[in-house]
Design a protein around this nucleic acid. Structure first.
Ligand code: MN
Ligand code: MN
Ligand code: MN
Ligand code: MN
Lengths: 165, 165
DNA sequence: ACTATGGTGTAGCAATGGCTACATTGTGCA
DNA sequence: TGCACAATGTAGCCATTGCTACACCATAGT
């Protein structure tokens, strides 16, 4: 197919590859696809990140992390948490034996620590640029998973430069 | 079950509800669950937001938005785009007839416009706080979907106060 | 020591979002 | 005027992340 626009029969434009300025168009595509691809990867990791952070918090607060507590904190049904914990185990981030609590491996703990630090940094930055505290806390829960190291370093420098942190 | 920690048989702690300070613990849970819940909603909407924005961009640039172009820009296989476009139609955001291009409904166009504006605002803010341009562009593709209106207004005010925008 | 109760596990369903493989369609160009 | 071939559609696979329903287990308290 060689392409013809048709909408309501108005436009009539041919194009061998793409109709827009052949200069920018060809450069834009792969770059944009890369950005979307990165976002998809981050989305896929976000669940693991939240779980490890939460498990570490529960162990710190309660001495243990139980499936039901994890589920309640996340606001999901317990089989949902159970299934994701299975994924954590599969990916070497956690261990668990039936009817005992959930434990983090070294890799899981490392993830938890870096994720917690990043979470706090994002909240602090949002507040520093004027976001209401609760909005900052809520938004950070999603935003955190998409902040690159380069951006994170910029956040740190920004906060330093303001005396905060 | 009344709960007993056990890990390696070390800890031995009972708890009727939760072991942590009964004052904060009970207040923390629902608040945190709410934040996670909001993040899940945003995650669910993110795909629709990216598609409407992209379709509007393609129509502006090419006069039409074809399934293959959408897929290539997103970096996914065309049946993946095709399936998501079906969801857009189902949710009243787009229309399409076989072998013609994709069109946005009024609702879809409204979403595209607000999403594009939010996207730009997020990129501008990230750059304003010092993120490298390409990191800002890449991170914004994920971050944008999790920024609340309250935080967005704060971003606007922050940029205004700096003469940017 | 028993048992009621609540934590835990498991089965099975649905929606979403990836993919590959293959069928169908439209049209630019020979 | 046809037809080759790219674009589009469709079928069917898998993984993830939700859910409800139900079975099983551990123990706190009697
Ligand atoms: Mn999070
Ligand atoms: Mn977090
Ligand atoms: Mn996006
Ligand atoms: Mn965007």
């Amino acid at each position: 197919m060689r392409r013809v626009a048709s909408g309501g029969g108005l436009v009539t434009k041919k194009r061998s590859k793409s109709s827009a300025s052949a200069s920018t168009e060809l450069a834009t595509e792969p770059v944009q696809a890369d950005r979307f691809s990165k976002a998809r990867s981050a989305r896929s990791a976000s669940m693991l990140e939240d779980y490890t952070e939460l498990i570490a918090d529960l162990i710190a607060a309660n001495g243990e992390a139980r499936t039901t507590d994890i589920a309640r904190r996340l606001g999901v049904a317990h089989p949902t948490a159970s299934k994701t914990i299975a994924r954590l185990k599969r990916e070497g981030l956690a261990t668990a034996r039936p009817y005992r609590g959930i434990f983090l491996t070294e890799a899981g703990l490392a993830m938890a620590n870096s994720v917690r630090q990043r979470h706090r940094l994002v909240v602090d930055l949002l507040i520093a640029v004027g976001a209401p505290r609760e909005a900052a806390e809520a938004d950070a829960e999603g935003i955190e998973h998409y902040v690159s190291d380069a951006t994170l370093r910029a956040f740190e420098a920004f906060l330093h430069g303001r005396g905060q942190r």
